[in-house]
Write a protein that binds this DNA or RNA. Structure first.
Lengths: 236, 236
DNA sequence: CGACGACTTGACGTGTTTCAAACGAGGTGG
DNA sequence: CCACCTCGTTTGAAACACGTCAAGTCGTCG
């Protein structure tokens, strides 16, 4: 990992994504939910990353485990011709980087300006060796990451564009403070690279859902779910 | 989008898939590789499943952990209209069913006649509570399952048919006893449902690779890799 | 106001799916 | 021993969903 402060090279002009107030509070509370969550809080050092800042790169030694405090993080892998697959988005309270392999299989970047708790893996493993419940929680966290990826796998393997976007919206809604109105921290390109589509197809699907009165799009980054039932039906 | 009905009847007349002799030996040896591997062997009871036999169903309580002794196993999930996504194939030596959630997210079936070691999860967890190395190995196994799914996810999200089939062949080759000649235990339909394609596309891609002199197909279930470099290039 | 980046929309091309038919290896029965 | 059936697989032709390329819109900021 590299300790980096100023990755945000270029345009700082875009207004930074602001975590909605209600979510910020819920994120603070989440700090002390769960065994390892709080353990991480005790052991960790907070770091800040600006938009698109690299948190770690593919192939680097996996010496740390991370927990999002604020903002949003994406993990992804690039094929050699530039195709990108995003494997997950992490929001406040989420832990990432705990694949037990010695090196990272993905890269991680801040989607928006973010603060991340960083904990030495070795310290956590040492603690887990003595405290059985910590070991158990590490396992559970990994298993839940597995579950999320398996779910995405089904979306990528067997769903069409509408179904993929519906799945994405329901997933984001499940994590939002206001289940009805979603603030998207990520761009259309991010969504496309998450869902295995192109940016154009994602955009078209959004407007299609809007025309069907399934969602509303007050702005491109704000989605109002008007007909959750329709989305669930699409979610197969 | 594809609506596919599983037509394979349980009926039995097809000659059972026979594990090649060399592989069978290697499987026996694998019995005592690795800490948990051997622990499982000590604690487990062997069970036999016939072709297409169900090992567990989606939603069932996840009370057991499994290890393939002989044969092959697939885990999969069905969408409500019959679309199927296979999440993994397990060959002799592989451990599966260790998602820590209390209920199975997938179903598991024997691809061919198989014997599987079955171990009570609670017993293993209890042992892990006392033996730190067992807990560690459980975590590692889950993390390696995570890695495999992440890899499949990239295939499903960002690769075309040729690249998917190439990835599949290289993966199977990596597990085969004879790296040059692969015996496929699974049908074209299984491969299609693993790679997020249709059976016709898989078949066409196989013949295309054969025409390109990248592979040979002495029989539909036997694949000879003639140009591994070409496959690796396709693997992006 | 003008420039820039993110997003949307349009027209067209294409890879994969769909639907349909033929093939071929194994097993069965006459 | 050969005709015949079955089931997995292959092949063909046509349809379609998504990708590609290109232009246009919108909101933000200098």
């Amino acid at each position: 990992m590299q300790i980096q402060v100023l990755t945000e090279s270029i345009s700082s002009k875009n207004r930074p994504y602001v975590q909605p107030a209600a979510c910020a509070i819920s994120a603070r509370n989440r700090r002390f939910n769960g065994k390892v969550g709080s353990t991480l809080d005790m052991m960790g050092a907070a770091m800040s990353f600006s938009r698109n800042g690299e948190i770690y790169g593919e192939g680097e030694a996996a010496d740390y485990i991370y927990k999002v405090e604020s903002g949003a993080v994406r993990t992804y892998k690039l094929l050699d011709d530039g195709r990108r697959q995003i494997s997950a988005f992490y929001l406040p309270g989420d832990v990432f980087g705990l694949e037990a392999a010695s090196n990272h299989y993905f890269s991680a970047e801040a989607v928006t300006t973010s603060t991340v708790l960083v904990v030495r893996r070795s310290a956590l493993v040492a603690l887990a060796a003595r405290q059985n419940d910590v070991a158990n929680e590490l396992w559970t966290l990994t298993a839940s990451a597995l579950g999320k990826v398996q779910n995405l796998m089904i979306t990528l393997g067997r769903k069409n564009a509408q179904e993929r976007v519906a799945a994405f919206l329901l997933e984001m809604s499940g994590r939002a403070c206001d289940k009805h109105t979603i603030e998207l921290p990520m761009s259309r390109q991010d969504i496309a690279d998450y869902l295995g589509l192109t940016i154009e197809t994602v955009s078209r699907t959004f407007t299609q859902l809007e025309n069907d009165a399934t969602i509303e799009l007050p702005t491109s980054r704000r989605v109002v779910l008007r007909d959750r039932g329709a989305l669930k039906r699409l979610n197969a």
